[in-house]
């Protein structure tokens, strides 16, 4: 394999994993931007979306329709969590918010275990999506799911970009991100804004859950944990609360993880996660606002 092909293949690998991280990170940043709250339950919306899709597929619904259903159910679950658990504690101290969102994630995960058991279950993919695209005599390969994930991230970013700059609701969200209290005073329906933000964020999480399950082949109640952790890292690198920052952070993290394995000797690759977390600490120390966000300026 020529060095150029090798680099290209590793770049494809990085994009494939990075786009998943980015998709999870977008929703996390949207909520943080408005509420200043680290929503740990975000990973569980992935689980809800993936399981809902699986149940619909088992019920005989065509795959595409099942995915749409799964995403909608994920979005609905997000709205319910906001209404039931987060709204009563809105404006409380950071510790209260953190503990509430941890409690929600425990409840949802254990609910998942009660209903589905914590054993991994096979996630069936239609052959069309499972297919491999192969070029240069099989030296360059990627799966249709990789392409779909990348496209979904692109569409999500464009849609959110349009939404927060061109619609009244989106502009309201940015106002709320700027100053929640002031947005309330000037007559914005803050409750409605926040519900919509949760619907959007959780819908993206649901979609990311389906794509994550499709790539890994299994669904399980704890499936949201690893991607949530990665999405937090991505959001911090890119700038927590900034949507373009979340996407940038997701791709950077994917690239970093892939390139460490691709170009460093195998005596160092076991320390991949240590390197990533060291970088995370460095960011928190020297550039806590991330790459894109300049403190106190444009949010979302």
């Amino acid at each position: 394999m020529s060095p150029l092909l090798y680099l290209t293949q590793q770049t494809i690998n990085a994009l494939a994993i990075g786009s998943l991280y980015a998709l999870v990170s977008i929703g996390l940043s949207l909520i943080f931007g408005i509420l200043r709250m680290a929503n740990f339950a975000h990973g569980d919306m992935m689980m809800v979306g993936a399981f809902a899709t699986l149940l619909l597929v088992h019920a005989g619904v065509p795959f595409g329709v099942a995915v749409v259903g799964g995403v909608l159910i994920g979005a609905l679950a997000g709205a319910l969590v906001e209404r039931i658990a987060y709204r009563p504690v809105r404006g409380s101290s950071d510790v209260t918010l953190l503990l509430t969102s941890l409690a929600v994630t425990y409840i949802l995960e254990n609910l998942g275990i009660l209903i589905f058991t914590s054993s991994p279950q096979n996630f069936p993919l239609p052959a069309l999506l499972d297919d491999v695209v192969s070029m240069f005599d099989g030296q360059l390969i990627f799966t249709r799911i990789n392409v779909l994930t990348l496209a979904a991230t692109g569409v999500a970013l464009l849609f959110l970009g349009w939404f927060v700059t061109r619609t009244t609701m989106g502009l309201g969200m940015r106002a709320a991100a700027e100053d929640l209290g002031a947005a309330n005073i000037v007559g914005l329906d803050v409750n409605r804004l926040i519900i919509v933000a949760f619907v959007l964020a959780s819908g993206f999480a649901g979609l990311a859950g389906v794509l994550w399950a499709a790539q890994s082949g299994v669904v399980e109640p704890a499936m949201g944990f690893t991607p949530l952790l990665k999405a937090f890292i991505a959001a911090i690198i890119g700038g927590f609360g900034s949507i373009p920052g979340a996407v940038l952070g997701g791709f950077l993290l994917g690239a970093l993880e892939t390139m460490i394995v691709a170009f460093l000797p195998s005596s160092i690759t076991p320390y991949r996660d240590a390197i990533v977390f060291a970088l995370l600490i460095a960011f928190l120390l020297f550039r806590p606002a991330g790459i894109l966000r300049v403190q106190g300026e444009a949010k979302l």
Partner: peptide, 8 residues
């Protein structure tokens, strides 16, 4: 959930 870097 991805071993593609190692496989490549």
């Amino acid at each position: 959930k991805s071993l593609t870097a190692q496989i490549t």
